[in-house]
Design a protein around this nucleic acid. Structure first.
Lengths: 224, 224
DNA sequence: CGCCTGTTTGACGACAGTCAAATTAGGTGG
DNA sequence: CCACCTAATTTGACTGTCGTCAAACAGGCG
């Protein structure tokens, strides 16, 4: 099972400054099972969330039913941002997840919090840009390999390990909606990678072994 | 020509607080012609920029030459963010552009500046998510129409106008690299929209008339 | 065991990509 | 102002990757 143990957890919540000592500035902790809704598109956007463990996905749905997962937020990431007064995306957990939530109004008063968020958003935007490259310019195979490598990076795998095992915290449909593909294409691509021994799909379909990380990286055409 | 008059300009730079009165906190102004580099991927990421007028594009290039424009930043937007100590994307102007740049070290000391940036990044991320939906789930035609409508929104067009004229501040190749298409597909799509009278491509190929905004919106499948 | 959900595989078609050539726009210098 | 040259755009013919529709298979749970 893909859960709190599988994903690297950022437990380093900064000590509050004296001026931030009001209770609410350290946030409210939320404990959610998998496939639970955090908020829906159109909800009043009064809170932001920091993922402490687990993972959530942000998605948008077009009127004709097409869905795109616009972002997956892992521990240390922020969700619940919005440009207007309602959320544009809907947010749901992929796995059992712990969130820390803050009122937007508190954000306006806490420099510590804002400072922390600016820091986090910088790398978060960089990751979104990575994904934009996948969606705009990569083939189905490259997208799938890139995702596997990205998930590997998030687990507690020694960076230089030659081989590893990666847990996919999502269904084939969710992978497809994240990668801008259909679930059939995701299946076929995984089957093909499996045949060519670039990955080994386990008995549990969500367990992927990568016998040769470097070879997968070449197929993925990752910059990183 | 697409320039400072065509794009809505945000001139409202906030008055500095007393503690922010050091000269550098109001930034350094940069005046650039079109198609000038602001920074390259791999450059030391010591500054962030706010677009005052014009537009810049952030792009990434894969080792085999494929390019993806990951973001177009319009007046009011921020660029120069990075997760590490070097820029991951390269940044160049699309049109004549005025930028205000700040040292990252100043960012660490100015609450006013950080507060302003958090605000801006929220809507900026929402726009990136819009674009993610285009890349992941929309057809070539929908992507082109969505871009035209987005550019319209940025110009000083009355929101309720039934028809309008939009300037494309970029070449067909740049449009293609932004929309995850080839330049041939962008051309064909525009020609086809032109034939079907959904747009009128002007003598200047970068001038697009939209006779019926509402009809274009239907074709674009915009949520917004 | 039977049902429901998630996954896999197959056959076929369509949208967009590739390669190539023609046409047009824009800039420079005579 | 015009001739020329280069870059940008447009169009065509063909190909390939991925989407669509459909059916079979596997796993979890009452």
């Amino acid at each position: 099972m893909f859960g709190q143990t599988a994903l690297a957890v950022d437990r380093s919540f900064p000590r509050m400054r004296a001026t931030d000592a009001r209770q609410s500035y350290s946030g409210t902790v939320l404990n959610l099972a998998k496939h639970r809704s955090v908020y829906l598109a159109g909800d009043d956007a009064d809170r932001i969330y920091e993922v402490e463990s687990g993972a959530v996905m942000l998605s948008r749905i077009l009127d004709d039913g097409r869905r795109q997962v616009v972002e997956i937020v892992f521990p240390g990431g922020i969700c619940g941002l919005s440009s207007g007064d309602v959320y544009e995306s809907c947010c749901e957990t992929l796995t059992p997840t712990v969130l820390r939530s803050f009122k937007k109004t508190d954000l306006a008063h806490s420099d510590t919090l804002r400072s922390r968020i600016v820091e986090k958003l910088q790398s978060q935007i960089a990751r979104i840009h990575d994904h934009t490259v996948s969606l705009g310019r990569k083939t189905a195979e490259e997208r799938v390999c890139t995702l596997i490598l990205r998930l590997r990076e998030l687990e507690n795998v020694r960076a230089d390990a030659k081989e590893c095992s990666v847990a996919l915290p999502m269904t084939r449909t969710e992978i497809a909606d994240y990668l801008g593909l259909t679930l059939e294409t995701v299946c076929r691509t995984l089957s093909d990678l499996n045949r060519r021994k670039l990955v080994q799909v386990g008995a549990k379909k969500s367990e992927i072994r990568v016998p040769n990380v470097e070879r997968l990286r070449q197929v993925a055409h990752c910059d990183a």
